[in-house]
Design a protein around this nucleic acid. Structure first.
Length: 499
RNA sequence: GCCCCCAUCGUCUAGCGGCCCAGGACGUGGCCCUCUCAAGGCCAAAACAGGGGUUCGAGUCCCCUUGGGGGCACCA
């Protein structure tokens, strides 16, 4: 273990093809933590060489998601940096330059096979139960002849000339050395017929030129890791440290989540998309804490982490290589924890948007008063609306039946309400301090249970069976409205008794 | 089919040869607190996939089996 770590340059390199999901969020988080911890740089690079898959708006959503999570980058497409451009679609010529270098050094070659021909070959290979692979038709074409055909404008791609003999060994930080027989590797295409480089080339070139020290990416890249190492070596460069993160499995643990499953999930109040999580009332603190612990751990008992603590304590050594099932129940737990850890002013201001979305005009002063009494009652921020929406409504809707307390008759409930009104109206101000003692005395006098009498008032004043603490709520609602609502409830009860 | 990776409670995990008849957390069950709901406190049930080695000693190292996951595109 080295105590003094060299500044790491790490990159988060998503392709703008859809919504940012948890897997990306975790990769970006680890990138960020490593960069901040070592005093290095966190770089955002957009891998958009495939124009067909480009989704407008995806890049913006990516950046919004990262910022929401608190992962601000040092270099990126929107802010530049010394190694730009940071969008691969703006680096086409750079990749071509290195592809040509590979051709000149004999590590790559032009291939004129058409997709149709290759599809046919693949089909036959499948039939013979062989692994699909490039048959090598153009591998040994005379380079001069190939160059002539290219110059003549014949459609072509560029393939990497993978050695047929020997083995390649690469070191992954979590798994140690990984060795494969080169014959199991294919002559992968590195430049398409439209002139755009593929990931295998583009990412390697960029990582080198951008001086990336650690490549943290998903384990779906493990099978092509030897290829990447071969390309880097053929270019005469040093490999970065390789860190392949395990994949996330669906909650059942049975495989990756499909697109369909991911979409359906939202209906249950959960989602694997960062954008949804935000709308569902999750906090970035909660999401970060949760996601950090899926594949990484600090010790045998610490689980609550702020971003600052993660920066301090994160270590690549404690990464776990095995796949992890997503556990949303645990996200709920962490979110609750972080909501409770929020300063009240902060909580209050974050709540506002959820009330507004529900059409409620939530003023800052009231919000600030509500915050402390609902803080420990929420799993997600949006729950504040159903819990405390009544604070912002002029009237409450009361179900008369709910005014009858459990174990009491309507007559008894009516009596309790009337006597309560007497007590409450005798006060010049209703607060927990002024109202609770006389109300408890009343409960005793009536020979009822606190839950019964307070329950009647709760429904009368809030319209809900479940609410924040009664007297605290009354104080916020204010004496006038409280008396008015209790009066209304008495009317309802009286009507019930009469009929 | 071929290649690669992984394997501790239901789930996330601690464990890097003796400190482990395996610790924490979520969830679950029970109790306490209590004006509802929460929060909080206490307690409980719950795991080293199987088989061979190596070693004085294996959850920890090696091999095999089994299981799971990922990959095999002119996607990333």
């Amino acid at each position: 273990m080295t105590d003094i770590k060299k500044p790491a340059r790490v990159r988060f390199a998503p392709s703008p093809t859809g919504h940012m999901h948890l897997g990306s969020a975790r990769t970006a988080l680890y990138d960020y933590l490593l960069a901040r911890q070592t005093g290095g740089q966190f770089i955002l690079r957009i891998e958009d060489t495939d124009r067909k898959r480009y989704v407008p708006g995806a890049e913006q959503e990516l950046m919004d998601g990262l910022r929401w999570l608190g992962l601000e980058w040092d270099e990126g497409p929107d802010k530049g940096g010394p190694y730009g451009p940071y969008r691969q679609s703006e680096r086409k010529e750079i990749y071509l330059k290195y592809a040509n270098q590979l051709i000149e050094s004999g590590h790559a070659y032009y291939c004129f096979c058409t997709p149709e021909e290759l599809a046919k070959v693949r089909e036959e290979q499948q039939k013979r139960k062989e692994p699909p692979h490039y048959p090598g038709t153009c591998r040994n074409l005379d380079p001069a002849e190939a160059a002539r055909r290219v110059a003549a404008g014949e459609p072509h791609v560029i393939r990497f000339k993978t050695p047929k003999e020997g083995q390649t060994t690469v070191k992954d930080l979590l798994r140690g050395e990984i060795t494969v027989d080169n014959r199991t590797l294919d002559d992968y295409i590195i430049v398409k017929s439209d002139g755009w480089a593929l990931y295998h080339l583009a990412a390697m070139v960029d990582d080198f030129l951008m001086k990336i020290t650690h490549v943290i990416r998903g384990s779906e890249w493990l099978p092509t890791l030897p290829l990447h190492a071969l390309i880097i070596r053929a270019l005469g460069w040093e490999e970065p440290e390789w860190v392949h993160l395990s994949v996330f499995l669906k909650p059942s643990g049975k495989g990756k989540m499909s697109k369909r499953e991911a979409t359906d999930l939202v209906k249950s109040g959960h989602s694997i998309f960062v954008k949804d999580l935000q709308e569902l009332g999750y906090t970035p603190e909660g999401v970060v804490n949760w996601v950090a612990l899926m594949g990484w751990s600090y010790d045998d008992h610490t689980e609550f982490f702020t971003m600052e603590e993660l920066i301090e304590k994160f270590s690549l050594e404690h990464l776990n290589p095995s796949p992890a099932a997503i556990n949303f129940t645990k996200l709920d737990h962490f979110n609750g924890l972080h909501i409770r850890a929020l300063p009240l002013d902060e909580l209050a201001s974050r709540l506002k948007v959820y009330f507004e979305k529900a059409g409620l005009a939530a003023d800052d002063a009231t919000l600030r008063k509500i915050a402390p009494i609902i803080q420990e009652r929420m799993v997600t921020l949006d729950e504040s609306v159903e819990l405390a929406g009544f604070f912002f409504r002029d009237t409450v809707e009361v179900n008369p039946e709910e005014l009858v307390a459990k174990g009491l008759t309507p007559e008894e409930s009516l009596l309790a309400a009337r006597r309560s009104l007497e007590v409450l109206s005798s006060l010049t101000e209703i607060t927990p301090e002024t109202a609770e003692p006389p109300m408890r005395a009343l409960v005793e006098e009536l020979g009822m249970k606190p839950g019964q009498v307070f329950g009647i008032l709760r429904v009368a004043v809030t319209g809900q069976r479940v609410s924040p603490p009664l007297f605290e709520s009354m104080e916020i609602i204010g004496r006038e409205k409280v008396l008015e609502r209790v009066q209304l409830a008495i009317g309802m009860l009286a009507e019930m008794v009469a009929s």
